[in-house]
Nucleic acid binder design. Structure first.
Lengths: 190, 190
DNA sequence: GTCTATAGGGGGATAGAC
DNA sequence: GTCTATCCCCCTATAGAC
């Protein structure tokens, strides 16, 4: 049992980890309770329903992402460094026992998750894409990124490919993920 | 109740559809039985375990894919037409009530599906990728596709992006999928 | 805040009648 | 080949004691 005031945070950490590992339908309150060495009902005290727990995980992630991109350490980077930072997020997921991104996990199960969680997933995906579009446009303007068409299409390809690559790497190995990141970078060269 | 000798085929059709709709953990024998207006146990007669049913779905899909790519209608196409045919498979999935590809669905749930099903998923992904690599290499050789690096990396980007785009389209709408296909095509131009 | 106990549902799977 | 009946497990969630 985790004896600290941050039990809510620890539950969110575990739920996030499970979401990225086995998906929303793949974990239960019992799994979380077991990790914390408490009983099932204790988790319900902090998060009454699984739907609320799932939404809280995504809300927290969305907040975290907004903090990152508005922080000077990211905001003031050159476009190509911003993109490296972004790919780094996914590389860290991959390195963490082959976890996949929350958005991909929830979208794959989209038709069997609660409506409120679907809405959170939509919002999160939108926000990731908006930032990536802006970064790609900035880089194209600056002459460091080269691609046909507009930043909206290119951002969709890059995001969907890294999301897909994390999943693919589970079947075909971590190097398949690396290959996708590298190819995406090469595709932005002249 | 479907009164014909092809009941096994119909069960496979339904299982495949459910896999693409709600995932392996999202459907049950009861769901299939309800569609066929029979009872649970009747499905077990044809496929003793859910694991076997899942494997049979993937095996059938793999066979189907091999038939397609070895058929003259696909085999003898120009590389850019082959790619159009390939994208068409995914476009049809998207049009079919927002279904996602079997590989993506199973990889997202990879850590909570039976080992035998994991193996089928690996084999299927490998085969899709091998064909795509050959097609891209053929097109580059012929001067109709243009990309930096080798066909292996490019194939990984294209496959993972369409797989991811089908999932993304559930959250952000069908046009997001179309955008990814179009951008992938544009990325292959000079 | 956590416990025990329990309700109520769904899941995969099997036995034996028809 | 399909049925009814059943087993046993896991799940989400709640009530009430501590």
């Amino acid at each position: 049992m985790v004896r600290n005031a941050n039990i809510k945070r620890v539950i969110l950490d575990l739920a996030e980890s499970f979401l990225q590992d086995v998906g929303y339908n793949g974990f239960s309150y019992a799994h979380i309770a077991a990790e914390l060495e408490v009983k099932n009902a204790a988790i319900h005290y902090h998060f009454p329903s699984k739907e609320e727990l799932g939404c809280a995980v995504i809300k927290r992630y969305r907040d975290r992402f907004q903090l990152w991109i508005n922080n000077a350490r990211v905001k003031d980077l050159a476009p190509e460094k911003k993109l490296d930072w972004f790919f780094g997020i996914y590389t860290n997921m991959r390195a963490d026992n082959g976890k996949i991104c929350l958005v991909g996990s929830l979208e794959a199960e989209f038709n069997s998750i609660p409506a409120a969680l679907q809405e959170e997933t939509k919002a999160m995906n939108r926000e990731l894409l908006v930032w990536l579009e802006a970064t790609l446009a900035e880089g194209k303007e600056a002459g460091v990124f080269h691609f046909n068409g507009d930043a909206v299409g290119k951002a969709a390809v890059i995001l969907s490919s890294v999301q897909g690559a994390l999943q693919m790497a589970r079947a075909l190995g971590p190097r398949k993920f690396t290959a996708v990141v590298e190819q995406n970078k090469q595709d932005l060269l002249v």
